[in-house]
């Protein structure tokens, strides 16, 4: 059985989410190839070839691949599937956008956000915002899968796969890329960060979020997250949202400040290794899952914590 992993990359190297997807692919089969499609993505293809366990790298160049346009990815991947039994994407915005299109084109049922490979046809995936897990078996000859990357370790270095060039068909005329606004940040990417500091509605304003949450995150070298309530209230951009309707994270340290712990938020962070909650309401549900809870007003607790972290040499 041969498996294709569609890589996400920044032209220079493949993203951590792809290394994790490769680990899930290796649980299906030892014959794992990686597709790197982009514009000027030669270095990323070379980096994919260096990942342990990768058999071969397919490298495709094209304007539309630069923006991850789903129609272009479909046009590239569907013909390649003649040689593969499964295709895996990371369950990111890009992966979720493209994978179901490919499944429909192949007439198969996609399998979304797997968190465990039981065997080559059976997978575990969260439903109802992670409040239940379903174990499903597919009868489709070809499988189209997205992978919840927080559930898998990243495949490491040590490979020396060959890179093969594949050619892509003409891009779809029906879609035109008009532009992107990518937030520039020196902070780590939320989805793969080792530490995350999140703020909730208790912040009360965008300024307060900026003045309280961001310095603490920078002190810890952490990514910044937010609850849906804080996003809905306009205190933080949607890209920060952790939860069922936002990003799922599983860092080593998750600090929730002024977050009550709605089910929908817990679904996005409950697999973190160590959870810290700071909330003035001692009955907040977040304390039921926090390893360390501090019942205090964040207005005094966060500056104190900053001071203690400074004393500890951070």
């Amino acid at each position: 059985m041969a498996v294709l992993v569609v890589a996400e990359h920044d032209n220079a190297s493949v993203k951590d989410a792809t290394n994790k997807t490769i680990t899930a692919a290796l649980a299906l089969s030892s014959d794992v190839d990686v597709l790197v499609a982009g514009l000027g993505a030669g270095a990323a293809a070379a980096s994919a070839a260096g990942i342990a366990g990768v058999r071969k790298v397919l490298h495709a160049e094209g304007d539309a691949f630069d923006q991850g346009v789903a129609e272009a990815v479909e046009g590239l991947v569907v013909p390649l599937m003649a040689n593969y039994d499964a295709v895996l994407f990371a369950a990111t915005a890009t992966g979720k956008n493209a994978a179901p299109r490919i499944a429909a084109a192949l007439d198969v049922s996609p399998i979304s956000e797997i968190q465990e490979v039981v065997n080559a046809t059976t997978f575990v995936r969260p439903i109802y915002a992670g409040n239940a897990l379903e174990t499903i078996e597919t009868s489709d000859a070809k499988k189209v899968i997205t992978v919840r990357t927080t559930a898998f370790a990243a495949a490491g270095a040590g490979g020396s796969a060959a890179v093969e060039t594949v050619t892509a068909g003409a891009p779809s005329a029906a879609v035109t890329f008009k532009g992107a606004e990518i937030v520039k940040s020196d902070r780590p990417e939320l989805a793969g960060a080792k530490r995350v500091v999140s703020g909730g509605r208790a912040m009360g304003s965008a300024d307060e979020f900026h003045n309280v949450i961001e310095p603490l995150a920078d002190k810890l070298g952490a990514a910044v997250g937010a609850s849906r309530a804080a996003v809905d209230a306009g205190y933080a951009p949607n890209d920060y949202q952790v939860g069922q309707t936002g990003k799922v994270v599983a860092p080593e340290l998750y600090v929730a400040v002024g977050i009550s712990g709605a089910i929908q938020h817990l679904a996005g962070m409950k697999d973190s290794k160590v959870i810290v909650a700071i909330n003035k309401d001692a009955d907040a549900p977040i304390f039921a899952i926090a390893d360390y809870g501090l019942v205090a007003d964040y207005k005094s607790a966060v500056p104190e914590l900053m001071g203690e972290l400074a004393k500890a040499g951070l």
């Binding site: 923006q67 991850g68 346009v69 890009t94 890329f177 008009k178 532009g179 992107a180 606004e181």
Partner: peptide, 9 residues
């Protein structure tokens, strides 16, 4: 809404 920001198509 995409990872890292916004895209317009």
């Amino acid at each position: 809404e995409i990872d890292g920001g916004l895209q317009t198509l």
